[in-house]
Amino acid sequence: MHYHLLIDADDTLWENNIYFEQATHDFITFLNHSQLSHEEVRAVLDEVERLMGYGSVNFTKSLLETYRRLTEKDQQEEDIEQIRGFGERIRSQPLQLLAGVKETLDYLSPRHDLVLLTKGDVEEQKLKVERSGIEHYFRQVVIVQEKDIAAYRQVVEELRIDPQASWMIGNSPRSDINPALAAGLNAVFIPHPHTWRLEHEEVLNNGRGQLLTLSAFTELRTHF
């Protein structure tokens, strides 16, 4: 059967969150708070990130705001520059495809209709897609501000696809799996060991669609 495969990008096709995790670790080590544990500082950063939004630019703002809230000394310009550097370094990281992604897209693209569906800062996501070298496998690249039920319904309508013949493939329960299922699509959950903490959620299949859980992107070849 010919399917529409909507495929997530960050931490599904290429590594992403490991670079944010490294920057977070460097920031917390640099802050070196005398009273708060690593986890307590991280909780404040999580709270700030919920307000700031996605992408490395907003993440850098989140680091600076967390520093402003938690620093135990007068704010120094050199400290601010150091922290800004932790965030900005993310953009210069090499784009590393996950194992078997290219070979799997080679296999899937002649058989199915592939759409890359990602969220975040438009320019930053476009740049990643261009750098990835895999854009040609996809009929279309769709970048949305948020992946919620309304966004999936809109994508289905704009692409004129049948939800029951469509699968959302990704690593995030909160953005890729639960809202897609709730919108009437099928979903393939491929967990990533370093999925962003704010994307964690119990996988719930409240819709009519099928749910597959795979351990690697390459396993798509077995099912599609």
Score class of each variant (00 low, 15 high):
G53P: 12
K61L: 11
R69D: 02
K126N: 14
E202F: 02
L181A: 05
E39M: 07
L185P: 13
H38W: 05
L185W: 08
R68I: 12
P173N: 04
R160I: 10
L127C: 08
G133P: 09
L116G: 09
A43G: 01
S37Y: 02
Q140K: 15
D162R: 07
E146H: 15
I149D: 06
D148W: 07
F224Q: 05
L105N: 07
Q125V: 05
L51D: 11
H112W: 06
R131G: 11
K126F: 09
S56D: 04
L127T: 11
E21I: 11
S56W: 15
N32W: 03
G184Y: 06
E124D: 11
N17A: 10
D74E: 12
E40T: 14
V101N: 00
G85W: 03
Y152H: 05
I169M: 07
H38V: 04
E124Q: 14
G133M: 06
I28Q: 04
R174A: 14
E49D: 14
L220D: 05
L105Y: 10
V155Y: 12
R131D: 06
L31S: 00
H200A: 11
T71Y: 01
A165S: 15
D106W: 00
P173Y: 06
G170F: 08
M1A: 15
S56T: 13
I190G: 03
H33V: 02
W196Y: 15
E103R: 00
F20H: 08
R69N: 07
S37A: 00
S92P: 05
K61V: 10
L116P: 09
D26I: 08
M52Q: 10
Y19G: 02
R111H: 13
G184E: 09
R50D: 01
Y54I: 09
R139M: 12
G87C: 10
E88K: 07
K73D: 03
L116H: 02
